[in-house]
Amino acid sequence: MLIALLAVLGVDLIVVVALLALVLSRKRWVKRRPGAFHGAIRVTGGAIDGLGPKWHRGYGHWVRDVFVWTKAPMLFRNALIPIDGADEPQAARPGEVKRLGDHPVVVRVRTGGATAEIAVRGDDSELARGPRNTPEAVVAST
């Protein structure tokens, strides 16, 4: 049905297949980055460019003190957020965030005058806290 509609509109099937291949290869590349995790992010206080108060799905990873958030569904835009600190992961309230497993956790991060929450699966809570907050980083900095 969709292909017939696109054909009527004059879109070639090869263009649709090429776009689909591009999106799927980008998703594979984003997911396989070292330290990448799937989750959702929202701003809870202040303002962060490109993000809002509603949960936004995507993939995140850390580059030193900068949190890189790749926005779903197309995964072509990144939000770069310099992080000042992160709190301990806490269990998400029931129904707060969906499609992150049975026991999602929320990590609150601070950047300048704004705060945000990153929701991830329970297994990914240490990845969401960032490299500065791992036990190895704390020992190395003392």
Rank of each mutant, 00 (worst) to 15 (best):
R77C: 07
A79D: 11
L80V: 08
L80G: 06
I81S: 07
I81Q: 05
I81P: 03
I83K: 10
I83M: 12
I83E: 08
I83V: 15
I83S: 08
D84K: 11
D84H: 11
G85C: 09
G85K: 11
G85N: 10
G85Y: 05
A86M: 10
A86R: 12
A86W: 03
D87W: 03
E88I: 03
P89G: 09
Q90T: 07
Q90S: 12
Q90F: 01
A91M: 06
A92Q: 07
A92C: 15
A92E: 04
R93Y: 05
P94T: 08
G95V: 05
G95S: 08
G95H: 04
E96K: 10
V97W: 00
V97M: 07
K98D: 14
R99P: 02
R99M: 13
R99S: 15
L100K: 06
L100R: 05
G101V: 14
D102L: 09
D102F: 02
H103S: 14
H103I: 08
P104K: 02
P104A: 02
V105Y: 01
V105A: 07
V107C: 03
R108W: 08
R108Q: 15
R108H: 15
R108M: 14
R108L: 14
V109W: 00
V109E: 01
V109K: 03
V109T: 03
R110M: 07
R110Q: 11
R110N: 12
T111G: 14
G112F: 02
G112W: 02
A114V: 10
T115N: 11
A116C: 15
A116W: 05
E117W: 01
E117V: 06
I118C: 09
A119C: 14
V120W: 02
R121W: 00
R121K: 15
G122N: 13
G122Y: 02
G122L: 02
D124F: 01
S125E: 03
S125T: 04
E126Q: 14
